[in-house]
Write a protein that binds this DNA or RNA. Structure first.
Lengths: 168, 168
DNA sequence: TATTGTTATACTCTATAACTATA
DNA sequence: TATAGTTATAGAGTATAACAATA
């Protein structure tokens, strides 16, 4: 799987290109992947795909995506949150959120109540939504565990810190 | 921005939940993000978004996505590659690839030539495609540089290794 | 005037199923 | 029968523009 692929070459400002070991080596699929394995964006993408694939399998029967779980968590942690604030927090346009919330409401996981302002909706988890979220959280813990097992505690801390630095 | 959000709780098999410092703290947007900042999948997603956002800006006038660049690199490194093998390598269905290749061919970046088999197309970069790819690679080098600057050389190696371990 | 939620619409990326031409 | 490429179609997920109600 490959969503990002390149050979960087001349990273050092005009000097002759330094061939890297990975440039000519063939991957398990018999193809040359060039410098890809050495590219941050590429490895980041592959790792993210692996983690999300496991997430999907973990949540299979619950039928919920990482993005939707994120919304439930935010509403759970910030009861009465408005749609616009939630949209901002999850990086979506507020119009995009409308059908998403419709679906979550139809599933009985959350509800829109009138907010402090007559323009505004406050978002709240239903009782069922809270129960659902608790179950999801337990599974997320197991899901995370599977990946954290691949790292030592020190590595785990370092990885999280480095990732946070990259996205800052 | 948030595509993945949760509070894990009980990661340790039934013992009482250990509250983490981040659980109640408010993020810069004034919202409680719960344990999110401590979740691997969440930080991975945020880092990937940041890197891809920078990639887009870097390639702005070239109008090419990470995924498309990956295809060009693979075709460049493996001339005569078949569509099916490319689809497999990039994790797409072979039917999905058809319109993508149509567009790249229309842009004059690659071409389908008859393959070893009369069912098969061989994919080749055009002269223009090679020139384009070379230009893209120079920009990728600068793009990568911006992120690698945030890490020491040792950290960079360690990060790439840890990411590879996660996706293995 | 500005903000909140909404609608209508469209674009991107992806998959599945069925087709054709080969093998 | 199986494989390579293609077509038609559909489903996520997202955005922009314009609107009504309210501030």
């Amino acid at each position: 799987m490959l969503q990002y692929d390149s050979e960087a070459g001349r990273a050092n400002g005009g000097r002759a290109r330094t061939a890297r070991a990975s440039d000519a080596r063939r991957a398990p699929d018999g193809l040359k992947h060039g410098v890809l394995p050495g590219l941050l964006g590429y490895q980041l993408r592959l790792a993210q795909l692996a983690v999300f694939r496991d997430f999907d399998q973990t949540m299979q029967d619950l039928g919920i995506s990482p993005g939707r779980v994120g919304m439930l968590v935010l509403v759970g942690a910030n009861p009465g949150l408005s749609q616009s604030r939630l949209a901002l927090a999850v990086g979506l346009d507020r119009s995009t959120l409308v059908p998403v919330l419709d679906a979550l409401e139809r599933r009985g996981l959350l509800e829109r109540r009138s907010g402090p302002d007559r323009r505004t909706n406050g978002l709240w988890l239903t009782v069922g939504g809270k129960r659902f979220l608790a179950s999801v959280k337990r599974r997320i813990a197991r899901h995370e565990q599977r990946f954290l097992e691949l790292l030592t505690a020190a590595e785990r801390d370092q990885l999280l810190k480095m990732l946070a630095r990259l996205s800052a």
